[in-house]
Simulated scan of single mutants.
Amino acid sequence: MSEQTETTKKPGLRKTRVGVVTSTKMDKTIVVEYVARVPHPKFKKIVKKSKKFYAHDENSTAKVGDKVRIVETRPLSKLKCWELVEVLTH
């Protein structure tokens, strides 16, 4: 029964983001800054919006300044609901 439910899940429904690591001071947690280019609602000019995400880094592989890919996961703490998938560049 559990095997069927695992195979019927639709892949790719989790949000992914690519950003730069800004802090690694916490244990097994990194802070990733994500910059999105979106049109302004009124003036339609493209503007940059940045947001910080707290992501789980189990092995502490990411360093400050690394470009990383994170994926949405279940809530792990009050602020942390993202998980490190891979380090793209050092």
Rank of each mutant, 00 (worst) to 15 (best):
R69T: 04
T89C: 05
K63A: 09
V47H: 08
E86V: 08
F53V: 01
H90Q: 07
P39S: 10
M1D: 06
M26Q: 06
M26A: 14
K67Q: 10
W82H: 01
V18N: 08
T29L: 09
E3G: 03
V31T: 15
R37S: 12
M26G: 00
P11S: 09
K42W: 11
K52Q: 15
T16P: 00
L76W: 00
K48Q: 13
L13T: 13
K49D: 03
A36L: 02
V31D: 08
S23H: 06
G65M: 02
K80N: 08
T73I: 04
F43P: 00
L76C: 00
L13H: 07
K67A: 07
S23A: 15
P41V: 12
E3C: 05
K15F: 09
T73D: 08
T61K: 08
T16G: 00
G65R: 06
R74C: 04
V38A: 04
E58A: 14
V85P: 00
K44W: 02
V47L: 15
G19E: 01
V20H: 05
V20M: 14
V20I: 14
F53D: 05
P41T: 12
K80H: 10
K10C: 08
K28T: 12
E83T: 13
R69L: 14
D27Y: 06
V38R: 13
M1G: 14
M1Q: 11
K48Y: 04
V47F: 01
K15N: 10
V21I: 07
E86D: 11
Q4W: 05
F43R: 05
K25Q: 12
V87D: 04
T61H: 02
T24A: 01
H90N: 12
T73L: 03
E3N: 14
R17N: 10
I46S: 03
W82L: 04
K80V: 13
P11A: 05
L13M: 15
P11W: 01
K67R: 12
P39H: 02
K67N: 10
